[in-house]
């Protein structure tokens, strides 16, 4: 009996060790570089095989919306961009936690490169929303709850990037931006909720951008676009992170070896 308990204990211990090792391997720059090198072709394939067909499907084959006509086809970039914008911030905040708790070098690389990419997708979401608003609401900008909270998300990205740019020492910049992005992620639900509440107070009847239930012939291309945008985001983040890793690790032997040919 005692032996069996011990066995179970060692088993959980080895499992835990395995998880721990896998997790900590991400901290190794060389491992990160090799892994992203292997993953990149797959993500490019995802972009080519999911995003581009999804966009063509949405643009040319999906039926028009009964109320909005063809202008609703902007949804196939607007909604995925919004998803990337929010996930990008979440990734940045998670990387911040890893930076503060485990002092993992690679986490800060990710946090640093995600910020401008996430901000650019937030910008994209805002502008496509405005363009969509013109034929739908009759104005370029409506203080719609979702657009407004997206605008504030954009400000949050800007503040994180500004803080990183202002601090010269890279290690200090890493931890300071980590704290700020964690503060931001704690605040985001409150901001979103308050903006929603403010919007219902001031605008009882605004046309919602998307219907609550989308017809399947519109939903499937949208899902393809969302998945495809995630691949695109992964490609951009990995490419940018690889540059950053090389720059930070230029003293190490593997970078020198990589540079030789």
């Amino acid at each position: 009996m005692q032996q069996r308990v011990n066995q179970a204990e060692t088993k959980t211990a080895t499992l835990w060790q395995w998880i721990n090792n896998t997790f900590h391997r991400f901290g190794s720059p060389k491992y990160f570089y090799d892994l992203t090198g292997k993953l990149l072709p797959w993500c490019w394939a995802g972009v080519l095989l999911v995003l581009i067909p999804g966009l063509i499907w949405g643009l040319a084959f999906a039926p028009p919306d009964y109320y909005q006509g063809n202008s609703y086809r902007i949804i196939f970039i607007h909604v995925p961009a919004a998803g990337i914008a929010m996930m990008g911030y979440a990734v940045m905040a998670f990387a911040g936690i890893v930076t503060l708790v485990w002092r993992m070098k690679m986490a800060d690389v990710i946090a640093k490169v995600v910020a401008p990419i996430g901000a650019s997708f937030t910008f994209l979401c805002l502008v496509t929303g405005a363009i969509w608003g013109r034929p739908t609401w009759g104005t370029w900008w409506e203080w719609d709850a979702r657009l407004t909270s997206m605008l504030i998300l954009f400000f949050l990205y800007v503040s994180v990037m500004a803080l990183r740019a202002a601090i010269e020492h890279p290690d200090v910049a890493a931890r300071a931006t980590a704290v700020l992005s964690i503060v931001g992620i704690v605040n985001l639900p409150i901001i979103r909720y308050s903006v929603n509440w403010w919007n219902t107070l001031h605008q009882p009847s605004s046309i919602r951008l998307t219907g609550s239930s989308l017809a399947p012939e519109m939903l499937y291309p949208l899902l393809a676009c969302i998945v495809g945008f995630y691949f695109l985001f992964a490609v951009l983040v990995m490419l940018s992170a690889r540059n950053e890793v090389l720059l930070r690790e230029y003293r190490s032997a593997w970078v020198k070896k990589w540079l030789k040919p």
Partner: peptide, 13 residues
Amino acid sequence: LIALPLYVPVLIF
């Protein structure tokens, strides 16, 4: 830049 976006909920309520 850091504080203003975080002020939003207080301002609204």
